[in-house]
Design a protein around this nucleic acid. Structure first.
Length: 425
RNA sequence: GGAGAGGUGGCCGAGCGGUUUAAGGCGCACGCCUGGAAAGCGUGUUUCCCCGAGAGGGGAUCAAGGGUUCGAAUCCCUUCCUCUCCGCCA
């Protein structure tokens, strides 16, 4: 969530930025939050004054008792009651205000960065880079789901039988290819300085809250009510939460983590031709990058992450474009997001394979992840970033479709050491 | 799942109703000492919030929440977590 400090001191800047999200409700919410904050601080000051009085008097009682002055002690005791009552009342009010304030704050998304364009929907995203030639395939070109069954790489029906739609079974070279990509992505991340971690796949409520999936988007996550745990929708949740309630040492920057995990998404109600095959699944594999950054350098970090993801797609020889999302298309917690899309030749459409975002201090405010500037006494919120590098299913889809020829599918050079084969046929 | 033990500051560890504004130690920072260092000595060292230009002042914080009391780390209730043993188990 946004920090109240920031809202208080940079209200105009916040409103101007938020306007880019094209959501008319936001200015009112900001005003509401500031008003509740004002009331809260006023009442807080009152309650603390009363409490100070009680503390002072209690100390006095102690002194009288020690001096053996019982009457004096009783006299003071009798006077405390009034203050106690008013503290009680003020505290109740405070609790209510706090709840109201949080409810409002939870509805205010992150303020988009200066560079982010105003816009309502995906149509207004800006293309910032394009790489690679879209291969001209002949009439033989097939979509990945057809290729998958022709070469026995996946079995969607089998997945339906075991679990349901959206849970494919990878078989033979399909399974091997999957494993190869995971290893390849992890190795590349490691070369780029990211430390590998293997986090839990189920997380508690605090963690879901820390990265912003809760309280609003619990419908997206599978929930195990028996144990009050959520299946992770992305490794971002457990990995970023490793830094919850922590004051990091400023010398530790840059803090770079990567991890492979399966991801689980309910994706309720989304069925149709656009979600055929590997395009949208309930369970999929992903290698994720997470970085905890110094606020002064987080946009350099973002650029480096983008460059890293680009290098992966280049090594896989997949044509891609990079979009800087407009205000309206950006996620709730992000200040700037770059989406990577690869062109799927057989489906004749762009598929999103990565999303790289700077959350600035929106997540760290909830996570309470802070650091101290050299020589400063006060702590300051860190910036958090993450990016997929990469999400496997759509990369696999594009790989199969773009690298096919009449007789099979060729594996990109970079992956061959991992697959152990250079063609599927 | 059953039984027991326990959660105190960056860490270890005392405290079990009012000189605790949390002892003592370790660590860390700064200073003195030194040719330089170690040792020694001295000072400082939880975090969050509020008021204040600042100096400073105030509040909260001994797992969390509630209660008793003039006053709670300390007593009572509830919840959570950790550890040990047993059972089950890849």
């Amino acid at each position: 969530m946004l920090s109240l400090h920031y809202l208080r001191e940079h209200k105009d800047e916040a409103l101007k930025g938020l306007a880019k999200r094209c959501n008319d409700a936001l200015p009112k919410l900001v005003e509401e939050a500031l008003e509740l904050d004002r009331q809260k601080r006023q009442i807080m000051a009152e309650a603390e004054g009363q409490q100070a009085e009680i503390n002072r008097m209690s100390k006095e009682v102690g002194e009288h008792m020690r001096a053996g002055n019982k009457d004096k002690a009783e006299q003071v005791k009798a006077l405390v009651g009034v203050h106690k009552e008013s503290v009680h009342e003020l505290k109740a009010k405070l609790l209510q205000l706090d709840t109201d304030l949080n409810n409002v704050l939870y509805q205010i998304p992150n303020v988009p960065h200066d560079k982010v364009a105003k816009g309502k929907s995906a149509d207004e995203n800006e293309e910032v880079e394009r790489w690679g030639d879209i291969p001209a395939l002949g009439d033989f070109a097939e979509a990945h789901w057809d290729l998958a069954s022709r070469y026995s790489l996946m079995d969607f029906e089998l997945g339906v039988k075991i679990s349901g739609a959206g849970f494919p079974v990878y078989t033979g070279k399909g399974a091997r290819l999957q494993r190869a990509m995971i290893a390849f992505f992890l190795d590349e991340a490691q070369k780029a300085g990211y430390e590998e971690v293997m986090p839990p796949l189920l997380v508690n409520e605090d963690s879901g809250f820390g990265t912003g999936q809760l309280p609003d988007k619990e419908g997206q996550m599978y929930y195990v009510s028996e144990d009050d745990l959520y299946l992770i929708p992305t490794a971002e949740v457990p990995i970023t939460n490793m830094f919850r309630d922590i004051i990091v040492d400023g010398h530790d920057f840059p803090i770079k983590r990567c991890g492979y995990t399966p991801c689980f998404r309910r994706e309720a109600g989304s069925y149709g031709k656009d979600v055929r095959g590997l395009n949208r699944l309930h369970q999929f594999d992903k290698v994720e990058l997470v970085e905890i950054a110094h606020p002064d350098h987080s946009y350099e970090v973002l650029d480096r992450m983008v460059a890293h993801v680009a290098s992966l797609l280049q090594k896989l020889e997949l044509p891609y474009r990079i979009l800087r999302l407009c205000g309206g298309d950006m996620g709730f917690t992000a200040a700037m997001t770059y989406d990577f899309e690869v062109y799927s030749t057989a489906q004749k459409r762009w598929l999103e394979v990565s999303s790289v975002s700077n959350f600035e201090n929106f997540q760290s405010n909830r996570l309470h992840c802070r650091f101290r500037r050299e020589g400063e006494k006060k702590t300051e919120l860190v910036h958090t970033l993450n990016g997929s590098a990469l999400a496997l299913p759509r990369v696999l889809a594009a790989l199969l479709e773009n690298h096919q020829d009449e007789n099979g599918i060729s594996i990109p050079e970079a992956l061959r050491p991992y697959t152990g084969f250079d063609r599927i046929d």
